[in-house]
Design a protein around this nucleic acid. Structure first.
Length: 464
RNA sequence: GGUCCCAUCGUCUAGUGGCCUAGGAUACUGGCCUCUCACGCCAGAGACACGGGUUCAAAUCCCGUUGGGACCA
């Protein structure tokens, strides 16, 4: 049997990391078994669904590299299919019209609550065999005796007592089908073999299984993956900060890092931490998914991102970094120059955004001088040494790290300086800050002209 | 409130009855490297929620308690 999985986001918000992980697991499972991965847009909620969200979700999936084999299907274009299925249930006596008004139901609900009972539909219209009527809802005739078992691939068998169920609504009074109904019809008609979804859906599963059976479809295998939680251990949401995949892109994360991180949230493979996409496809297995919820912890994502930045070739990083440099408003430069800049920054930056921020002095005509640093290190006593350094640099045809270091050491000795103090003086001169990549690499990247200029400007400002 | 799920270092996790004096990763602390900061390397601290069973032996199996979460309302 060919494996078919799906990812069914509803376009009422952005693609958040929880959804992305669900998509990833479905995608990996399908790829691992050479199956099919389907994208289905659940846009039955016409009021809250927005085209921009559809586009955002698609963009997010593409950025992560989770390509689908079929779709996107839109539920809003499948209404005929749902209608046909409802008619079939009606004709077979497995569903019925219900005239109970919301007010009546509300009253009964309150009564039940008052008696300490579970508020469920009491079946008033179940056997009345009512004809269609505008404004009436359609209910599914649930099996209310016995048990329904969900054989979950992650949790094992979960047994539900059917007496907990009631005749739930499959078509609202406005004629639209409900979520649990369309999901089942879609999954069944699309031939989904494995439903991998968040375990917040576990409680929906028994009623869905009953519907599969009523419709004459074999239920798929279910795998309910644990939730992703915020640091406060509640379901991850916007109020925990960045939750949307595209926001992580804006913050300078690499898709490889996010994928790796998401994969390891709830899934593991011994002690291994680093996985390429290809490796994940080979090694992914539902049996290695854990049962307990995981806290989304950005520190580890940052570490992974730093790792992937170090691993990515400079040429590729340059292309990725360019948009961030533009956003910072730096004057544009050659790709060759950016590549050299990156080489000095790639072990220091944890995100592309951070890298762009650390790179300001490479691109700006004049560095942004930190006044405290200037005050502390660009002192009169250091001036002669700086002067001599400038003189030596001017005498070089091109800047070379080894030669620069040699000159640096010579001058330190000659003026009996602490290497640290002289280095910091040069650093502040060139970068405006006390923290930067290695001095000699900074100088070679900047080039003789810029280095000379910055030295001259600073020397003018230091009082004798 | 009802139903369901879950429970190993702060966090992600390894662990499927003896290999556990509980391993790895991250974060943290200290050291080395060193022109600063990173990187890298070395070291340290840090967990089986609790209580009962089962067993020669339990982090691992069973029951209960507690705690957390989700769904429904």
């Amino acid at each position: 049997m060919k494996v078919i999985t799906r990812f069914p986001p509803s376009p009422t918000g952005h693609l958040h990391v929880g959804g992305a992980r669900t998509a990833l697991f479905n995608w990996l499972f399908a790829r691992h078994y050479h199956g099919k991965f389907i994208l289905r847009i659940e846009d039955t909620d016409r009021l809250r669904s927005k085209q921009e969200y559809v586009e955002g979700i698609i963009e997010g999936l593409k950025w992560l590299g989770l390509h689908w084999d079929e779709g996107p299907y839109y539920q809003s274009q499948r209404m005929e299919i749902y209608k046909r299925h409802i008619e079939r249930l009606l004709a077979e006596g497995k569903a019925y019209y219900c005239y109970c008004t919301p007010e009546e139901l509300e009253k009964k609900r309150k009564e039940a609550m008052a008696k300490g009972q579970k508020p469920r539909y009491d079946g008033t219209c179940r056997n009345r065999n009512l004809p269609p009527k505008p404004g009436a809802v359609i209910r599914f005739k649930s099996n209310l005796v016995g048990e329904t078992a969900v054989n979950d691939l992650i949790h094992g068998p979960i047994i539900f007592n059917n007496s907990e169920l009631d005749d739930w609504i499959i078509q609202r009074s406005d004629g639209t089908p409900t979520y649990n109904f369309v999901v089942v019809v879609d999954d069944a008609t699309m031939g989904i073999t494995h439903v991998i979804r968040g375990d917040d859906h576990i409680n929906n599963t028994p009623k869905q299984i009953q519907l599969y059976e009523a419709l004459g479809y074999a239920p798929p295998a279910f795998a309910h993956v644990p939730m992703i939680l915020g640091p406060d251990k509640t379901k991850l949401s916007k109020r925990h900060g960045a939750a949307s995949v595209l926001e992580y892109r804006e913050m300078g994360f690499l898709p490889e890092a996010l994928i790796n991180f998401l994969a390891r949230l709830g899934w593991s493979y011994g002690d291994q931490e680093i996985f390429s996409l290809q490796e994940l496809i080979e090694k992914f297995d539902i049996s290695r998914i854990g049962k307990s919820a995981a806290v989304f912890n950005q520190e580890k994502l940052l570490w992974l991102n730093a790792h992937y930045i170090k691993q990515t070739p400079n040429e590729k990083l340059a292309e990725l970094l360019k948009p961030f440099l533009e956003r910072k408003g730096y004057p544009s430069t050659s790709t060759d120059y950016i590549i050299k800049v990156i080489q000095t920054l790639k072990t220091r930056a944890k995100t592309l955004l951070e890298m762009a921020e650390m790179a300001d002095f490479y691109f700006l005509e004049e560095p942004i001088y930190d006044s405290k640093a200037v005050q502390k290190f660009l002192v009169p006593q250091i001036k002669p040494a700086l002067k001599e350094m400038l003189h030596t640099i001017k005498g070089m045809s091109a800047l070379d790290e080894a030669q620069l270091e040699q000159a640096f050491k010579r001058i330190v000795e000659k003026y009996a300086l602490k290497p640290r103090n002289f280095a910091q003086a040069i650093r502040v001169t060139l970068t405006g800050r006390t923290v930067s990549p290695g001095l000699f690499e900074v100088m070679t990247v900047l080039g003789k002209e810029k280095v000379t200029k910055r030295f001259e400007r600073i020397l003018e400002k230091i009082k004798e």
